[in-house]
Amino acid sequence: MMDLDKIIASLRDGKHIPEETVFRLCLNSQELLMNEGNVTQVDTPVTICGDIHGQLHDLLTLFEKSGGVEKTRYIFLGDFVDRGFYSLESFLLLLCYKLRYPDRITLIRGNHETRQITKVYGFYDEVVRKYGNSNVWRYCCEVFDYLSLGAIINNSIFCVHGGLSPDMTTVDEIRTIDRKQEVPHEGAMCDLLWSDPEDVDTWSLSPRGAGFLFGKREVDQFLEKNNVELIARAHQLVMEGYKEMFDGGLVTVWSAPNYCYRCGNVAAVLKIDDDLNREYTIFEAVQAQNEVGNAIIPTKKSQMDYFL
């Protein structure tokens, strides 16, 4: 049996985790996640979190500002990896919390939780740099395929990474998707992870090249048909941390402050209480120096092969 608390402590400190340990964490996570539905049922009170993008120290700040996993229930809307320094530690920390407190952490898949995207946008590079091979990246990608596609809070709030799909009008239809695969380039599963809300009259082509743009009409139809009052999603940077649209029927929550260590934005999480009241907590990026003056920089690893 793994000592999760010890691993959690190492991860929080950004310390190296042996490859064998990562393998076992990923295997155990798969076994746990495969039993969850495409749309996970979650009870209030719960705190909804947006994109993390490997910003481990900001993830730790998020927990500190919002109560912590020992006392609070969380839904993470995906995009745990890519772009930041600590994609691996951020993702593994969330997996450990999932294993340690299965009923308190819900992890939804983002468009970055795929092989193709992580190969290009940093996670693969990070793993190869930290381990000298890509095995750990492969283990994590296996876990990605088991993440849920959405969550529903008290049957009243629908959570998803990107947004809606013209191919799926009900939550029950989402439950029929075979999700255990690489994110396809089109279709409902793709749309849930890639779509964006926009001031458009009807479904429109997304400039991202995947997913759709959807407007108020589509949101209102979805809310009414599924008898829910809010769609909570992430996927887009919001400089103010969160942004409500369509008369409060949809909210974008963004949880990576100073995104990519340079965008200068604040971040937010959204707490939903038992009466479905919304409370946004705003937080800023961790300073570049920790409290004892050491720069929060990954420890030196072997140099890139090109320069040996």
Binding site: T114, Q116, Y121, H185, E186, P207, R208, G209, C263, G264
Partner: peptide, 23 residues
């Protein structure tokens, strides 16, 4: 090619220049 989304299906990322100007 859709199996290699990367550069093709561009993911919007504000440039550092934009962020600096906004600040």
């Amino acid at each position: 090619v859709h199996t290699t989304w990367g550069d093709c299906c561009g993911i919007k990322l504000p440039s550092a220049i934009a962020a600096t100007e906004m600040n």
